[in-house]
Design a protein around this nucleic acid. Sequence first.
DNA 1: TAATAAATCAAATGTTCGTTTGAATTTTTA
DNA 2: TAAAAATTCAAACGAACATTTGATTTATTA
Lengths: 194, 194
Amino acid sequence: MIKKKKDIRREFIIGEAAKLFKQKGYGGTSMRDLAEQVGLDAASMYHYIKSKDEILQGICFDIANTYVSQLTEIENATQSYSQKLKALVRLHIHLMTTKGPEVSVANNEWKSLSPEALTEFKSLRSQYEKRLAALIEAGAEAGEFQQVNTSVALFTLLSAIRWVELWWKPDRGITTEELENSILTILFQGLEKK
Amino acid sequence: MIKKKKDIRREFIIGEAAKLFKQKGYGGTSMRDLAEQVGLDAASMYHYIKSKDEILQGICFDIANTYVSQLTEIENATQSYSQKLKALVRLHIHLMTTKGPEVSVANNEWKSLSPEALTEFKSLRSQYEKRLAALIEAGAEAGEFQQVNTSVALFTLLSAIRWVELWWKPDRGITTEELENSILTILFQGLEKK
DNA sequence: TAATAAATCAAATGTTCGTTTGAATTTTTA
DNA sequence: TAAAAATTCAAACGAACATTTGATTTATTA
């Protein structure tokens, strides 16, 4: 037996929690709300999860680790810095369209992590930003990018795509391909026509 | 007597609330936290404010109204659509550097508004987005912008600058002028060097 | 200075929260 | 089918919350 029924239930609870946390915030979601969503009494959920905080940790660190491993792959690829950056932006967008609630929670609710988890999470994020900044810096030195402040470029890129996690639904009348292309056009070519 | 002492106290409380709401979230900030911050007993604060929700409303709608009136001014100005859009982005950035906590709260904590206020707030935001979308649409038809989906352009622009409200401090070693110029360069010229 | 108004807070109210306990029920195993 | 294990929930716990009450202190006014 590879995956126990208990684990499946547990994952279901965490998935529903992600949806609720995205919708109403971590603080705004009670364990009783979550219990109702999964069709259990609140007390019963504690057979599958240890605490509310553990759920949030699961979501946040799962996403954080995904981001880190994607960045590592790109760092090791042989492409121009411009291509690397574009590929990374695509991966970010893709993750938002496939794991919307989880990404949303990791991006917006991490402040509610317990103190120890919070420290660890901020450290992970800081490392990620440093490595990404290095990529931008290298690209600028290679003459591939405009001369703009690295931090500004870093945060503008990361921030510019954040709306996707809130906006994207399968029925928006736009494919993920179009979505990615439009965003990449604005960020790398600029909105203004030359 | 133009401004009563009571009103000044009230505004101070709301200002401190904005800082705390930004830092710890609306749900994560108790009235006791806020009382300690302003140097009063929790009960005493109720001489100056009606409720916690009223504070949040004050912050959110103050910012929302500022955005709307700024947009109205720009709509009525005689400039190219490109100039209008750039001016608006500058105003957004400027508001973040001058009213950081309030903008942060209006952007991140509006979900905690009471049901009626929430409806009103979402309506205001939706109107704002529609008018901004119309500006982008018009600029595209005038041939000033690249051919990208209007919603994508709209949200990418608005989202791209959101990090400023969290990042900007007077001692970041960058003037607001440089900050605005760098961001505008990326968004309108693109990060890639041609 | 005496009367009045404003400001303060100790104490309590009722509610909601995350979580635990312990017993009942259902499912699995031998 | 009997014993063991897993699952469920009713009930309750203590803590934290926003807010109210009522009395006390401080400032203002006549």
